[in-house]
Design a protein around this nucleic acid. Structure first.
Lengths: 211, 211, 211, 211
DNA sequence: TATTAAGCGAGACGGTACGTCACGTCTTAGG
DNA sequence: CCTAAGACGTGACGTACCGTCTCGCTTAATA
């Protein structure tokens, strides 16, 4: 996810900007180091002391920053968690390897292959849980996963054109079938995810969908 | 999950009595109606006002019960949520329909078919999130899903004996492949789960696994 | 004060008692040892752990008694404290030594001479404080001090008859003048009270009142 | 009593600064209006609803203040009561009327003349009771009464110089003899204190002490 | 160079929920 | 009917965080 989605204050609500140069607002500009310090402190607090100890005060203390400096940048704890998560789980690029199998493996790798690390699990679970409850978080989470859905659509279309998949293959259903088991392993089974696991899942699903 | 796992005070793991009669403790016994009232109130509060408004005070008020009566039975909010979740998501029986397809569909139905209802989503997400952070919750959650894993093992063994699945089929991996997509739909995709979805997933996976 | 004032249940509200023999009520009689055990436990708890730790539960545990057994005998914590105080500070007898000076010294001795002991101070202060707030306690406290007032009236009357005091001497004012300084030493000054102090106060007051 | 004794956080006993300017601490300063509002609310709650209904929550609600704002200033309910008491019972000035009789009457007036009002009684009794139990409160109460003792010493010294009192008069004993009866009337007798009562007590004691 | 406007760390603010404790009452099985 | 034990509803306790609001200061761009 881009920061803009959860940090609307940064670039938004600025002067009409006649000149395309960034309309510098008067007054002292925001300390650009604070953003990074806060995000890093968020990740550290979450990973070191768990989500139960995740406190805006704790993040502020950890980052050596005032609470107001956090709330000036993020509207809520949730938005902060989400942006911290985005720091850890990068957006995938849409792959084009020539084979649907390798495309799907590439699409999944960044999101799950080392997602078993405790901190990513924490963030993913926290974001997921909050999303169920909080419509805004739900929206942000859907925005974040949209890229993967778009990737899936492209990959499937190309696979259909190459004759690797039936013409009526639903790319969203395909994504459920592949991302689902990986997500489930992380959240419920608690078993590790390596490259071979991703490949195994993709193989079973592709074989099951052919026909 | 059994209540005993998260309500350790109830029977207190004692066995001094030579006769098998349960050694009645002195004093006024706990009101058995309170247990039910508290669990029901927990579900109601979670469903009606969302997880953000889930408050022990609110549960107590809803149940017409003192807070101490809740804390006498459950050591924390989390344990309470867990037991309430166990109320909503019943343990599956191990099915034996004669075909692996119908067995798996039966195994999944109780857990997911109407899990899309907001309240179950809330509970599942909350429990999952807490489990990532809280080792005790993790253990309880694994205890809870153990039954389904046991069921999967039995179903797979019978399927192998009938020749419906390859002899080297891993029942845990099978469970990842089937429960994963359903769980993912509930938590991430947010799309509904009906009988046909469960059947579709099972069909794809079985076809993919059969050589 | 007699127990009857604060323990109205004991003898009161019993059958019309046609035969003068004590009308034995049906059922198990009250354990007479419990009364003493409770009062003693009250004193112990108050003295050992201070008034802040004075708790009905603590008294019950200390006395090896159920809480209900306490509440069956005393209507409230306050009544219990009061009766425990009465245990420590005995009612004075009306003295008749032949001289007003010795009469007054005798009247005060039991109440104050060793009242400086921490436990009596605790009880006196607690009772006094509660009395200001609680009308019932106020009444009980006045009942308790009534005996001393009665004694003062008798002593003063005899002193007037003997010509030791002016005919218009107000016995209540006399009591204020003598008991006041002693009480004040206990509660505020914190200085010890010995026999000579009582005598000094009595001497000053009697000399001051004679004309 | 000075506020500093029971509100140790306020100035925090620091003196690192070479210049005598008070070293302003960083952060938002405490709202000075809150102090007054809390003290006033304390007095109101005590007077309107009695000591039994004296609750930190009630004070907070009455003052329109959060509970934390109270606990930031006073470490306990008791300290709060003490400071509120200091609000009501002003420290006496040391009088110098030229006669020991008028000096003593003046010294007592502020403390007792209208102390019979229910609210002052409540506060005095509560403070006294707590002092017996709580050494810190005891110390604070003695600090508070120190001024009166100092006044007594000065008044007695001047009276001795003027020949109004014997040279060996003990000013503390004199204070016991005069303040004691007044205190006793307030706390035990429950009879009113007017100017004439103070004068009567002073007259008897002075006459009794003058040989 | 002086003014202005916003950001900065710090921390107080009114709230709300936490989990604990004690109240005085009620409910067991047994004496 | 009393007993010890202990659960009950109630409500205050003192703590912790929430998100907001001052403080005095710092940092640029404007005047």
């Amino acid at each position: 996810m881009t920061s803009a989605t959860s940090r609307p204050d940064t670039a938004a609500a600025q002067a009409p900007a006649d000149p395309p140069v960034e309309a510098r607002r008067p007054g002292r500009p925001r300390d650009p180091q604070a953003d990074a310090a806060i995000l890093q402190a968020t990740v550290e607090v979450l990973c070191e002391h768990g989500f139960g100890a995740f406190t805006v005060d704790a993040v502020a203390a950890h980052a050596g920053v005032g609470k107001a400096t956090i709330y000036r940048r993020w509207p809520s704890r949730e938005a902060l968690v989400l942006d911290a998560a985005a720091t850890l789980v990068p957006q995938p690029d849409v792959p084009d390897t020539g084979s649907v199998r390798d495309d799907l493996i590439a699409l999944m790798s960044g999101s799950f292959e080392d997602a078993a690390s405790a901190n990513k699990q924490q963030l993913m679970a926290a974001v997921t849980a909050e999303a169920v409850v909080n419509p805004e978080m739900k929206r942000l989470l859907r925005d974040y996963t949209q890229r993967r859905r778009d990737g899936s659509a492209v990959v499937v279309r190309r696979a259909i054109e190459r004759g690797e998949l039936p013409a009526d293959t639903d790319p969203d259903f395909l994504l459920d079938l592949i991302a689902g088991p990986l997500f489930y392993r992380v959240q419920i089974s608690g078993r590790p995810i390596g490259d071979e696991v991703v490949a195994d899942v993709v193989d079973v699903v592709l074989r099951g969908l052919a026909h």
